[in-house]
Each structure stands twice: as C-alpha cells, then as structure tokens.
Amino acid sequence: MPTRRGDGRIAFAYLTPALLVLVGLMGYPIYQLVLISLFDYGQEQVSGGAPLTFLGLGNYTTLLANARFWAVLGQTVGFAAVCVVGTLLVGTALAVLATRVRTWARMTLFLAALGAWATPAVAGSTIWLFLFDANFGFVNEVLGTTGFSWTYDKWVAFGLVAAQVIWCSFPFVMVTLYAGIKAIPGEVLEAAALDGASTTRTATSVILPLLRPLLIVVTIQSIIWDFKVFTQIYVMTNGGGIAGRNLVLNVYAYQQAFAASEYGLGASIGVVTTVLLLIVTAAYLRALRRSGEAL
C-alpha cells in the first residue's frame, strides 16, 4: 500500500463521523452506566429533590446480599442453557438432515427456517402467545386442553419462551453448519468410505472434528444471544411473569430502573450482565483465533 503525505489526516477525516457516533453513543454511555451504578440514584435524585449520594460499591453489596438477584441470575443461566442446547440440537440435526435430501426438500426447509429467522421478535412472541392462548389458542384445541394457561406456571412459561427463542434462532445454526458440512472436501469422505468407515464412524471421527471450530463459534454466539434475551421474556410473560417470577437479568435491570426508579441498582445489574458477557466474549475471541480467523 502506497503511503502518501497527509494520509493520516485524510484517514482521520474519514473516521471522524464514525468515531463521534461511537464515542458519544457507546463509549460515553458505558462510562455513565458504571458511574450511575456507584450512586444512590432514584426518583428524588433525578428530579433534583434529593442530593446525590456516592455509595461506592454499595449497590453491588445490596445486590449480592439479595436472594432475589441470585434467583434471577440462576434463572438467566438456566434459561440460556436450555435455549443454547435446544438451538444447537435442533440446528445440527436439521443441518445433517438437509445434506441427506434432494434440493426441493432442502429448499422447503430453508424457506420455512428463513421465515422463522426473519420474524421480528415482538411479532414472533405475539404469534406464539396467540397459538398457546388458553381459550382461543390452536395448541389447546389440538391437545384438547382448552382453558389451560401456558403462561401461568413459572416453569411452563419459561419452557414456552424457550421454545419460541429456539424457533427463531435455530435457522442461523442450521444454515451455518450446513455450509460447513458442504465445505468438507468430497475426497476426505471418499477416503473414509474406502477405508471402510461406517456412517457413524465417519460422522464422529471425520465430520465432527472438521466442524469443531464452526461449532464453537455458533455455540458461543448462541450463549451471547440467549443470555441477553429481553423482548421474548418481556412480551410473553408480560414484563417478567406474575410477581416477577420469570425475570432474567436484562428484564430485572429494566424493571429496577424504569418501574421501581432504582436507577443505580438497575445500572449495577447492567454492569454485572456486561461483565459476564465480556468473559464469554473473551472465550469467543480466543476460539475465533484458534479457528484461524485473522484480525
């Protein structure tokens, strides 16, 4: 690349709009998030009726001493785990199935999956709510359980939301893994067949190791997505379920801040979520590097 005089200045000029937007609307808010989490920041402080009190790590100790927080954290991890495992199982199984059928069947499946993928989260959540409606829902009609509420019981409600999340996130895994399987050179599979390897043996000893880097990437990507699910929980359980029993961290932080006006406490939950996700992200970057992607 030729280096010319004044390159730095022009590059800087090109970068300025992006830097302004990113510093102003990502960088500064991140700093503010941490700052707010260190203060007792409630309705009175916002309206100027009470002075700001610096709490240091006060909000965090309050949080860690609160049994509710630990319950929500546990639920978030459990919910994300179910979604991730479900998404990967469905996505992988269908990717393998797609390699075994002719084009017309594969296109039918991919088109249906594309539809689920493209559906906006709010619309998807609402459709599922209606399908599982106690009185007018088609699912209760088929099962003969008219009147049964799928959103009342805590675990049934979590299960329903998880199913919805899996429905709209498996297509990404399926399409990615299908492309991965297709990219395996035919000679490798032929060689395995010549050596007398069975189908299962080929799958576990040849295809799986070759797909490992891709599997790691989709797994971690799914963890990141499912850990911060907001819309589905909010819409389907009406803001976190009866008495907040279907809360996950993101919805919990939102409710603490905007429903209870405990902005400081809400911000500290946000910081905890961010830190947890950055740890996962660090693992993601390491996995990416190991799979050979250059920066």
């Binding site: 998030l33 850990f227 979520t273 961010t274 950055l278 920066l295």
Partner: peptide
C-alpha cells in the same frame, strides 16, 4: 489502526440492553 479494529470488535459484544439506563438520561 489495530487498536481501533480491536475496539470495534469489543464494542460489538457490549450488551446494548444494559445501556438503556445511561442512554435514557443522555
């Protein structure tokens, strides 16, 4: 240049949901 590239990657991983509170005040 490299620093900027790494920042771009990291910033993609920040859960934007957590930023609702500071962005609201902003």
């Amino acid at each position: 240049r490299t620093t900027l590239l790494i920042m771009l990657l990291v910033v993609q991983m920040v859960p934007v949901e957590a930023l609702t509170i500071p962005l609201f005040f902003l």
